[in-house]
Amino acid sequence: MSHSSVDLAARCRGLVKDFVSGATAQRVLDGVDCDIPFSAMTLLVGPSGCGKTTLVSLLAGLLDPTAGEVMVLGTDIGRLRGKSKVQFRGRNIGFVFQQYNLLPALTARENAAVPMIINGAPRRRALEKSTELLERVGLATKADALPKNLSGGQQQRVAIARALVHDPRLLLCDEPTAALDAASGRTVMDLLRAVAVGPDRAVLIVTHDSRIYDRGDRMIVMADGKVTATLEEKSMFAGHEQTGAT
């Protein structure tokens, strides 16, 4: 049932996160333990406000933990600082956001090339690689289109190409299908499975969307800042329908 740490893309132990505003502190994560193995698509579910996005932000090193440990690809990302943290994130982690956050002035091809360019790759190579990824997400014909001329599902596919262009080993997706209709949502999930899951790669998907539960391999269930269950079998997912707000 449990994975040896070698197979783990990420591992959290006793993770605590408080948001302090003025004199009051709100404990949003309260001792989270979880594992995210390679070669699998892990779903992170739970009611609205239970701390899913906060956990993803900690895994990405976009927030610092109040206490506990976040190991990502063998590195304690909570301890990294400044440039080395930004660089670590830039090289190893890919993101897919609910709002696709594409740069409006750039074509699909250029948008998808951005992470490689950030990592210092020559523009030509980055554009070649992004063209290749756009092919894999089925958008070869739209490579020169601007985001405003693409549908939501197409924009999210561009975002997936962008998230994967620099071969990150951990892909973090927060509600990637929430803004899409059911069919586009399923297409996106299938795409993620096909292009993002691999022997040395892990995918974590935060979702509210029970329609796509069957696309996951494992499920981490959260409530109230804690992990309440980790389900390793698809057959068990069904009982964990959406409980919070949509």
């Binding site: 400044g82 440039k83 930004v86 993101f95 956050n101 594409l102 740069l103 992470p115 990592n119």
Partner: peptide, 15 residues
């Protein structure tokens, strides 16, 4: 108006 895009760039590794 581009603040989300700048945020995304920051997340993607631009310091």
């Amino acid at each position: 108006e581009n603040i989300r895009q700048f945020g995304a760039l920051k997340a993607m590794g631009v310091d």
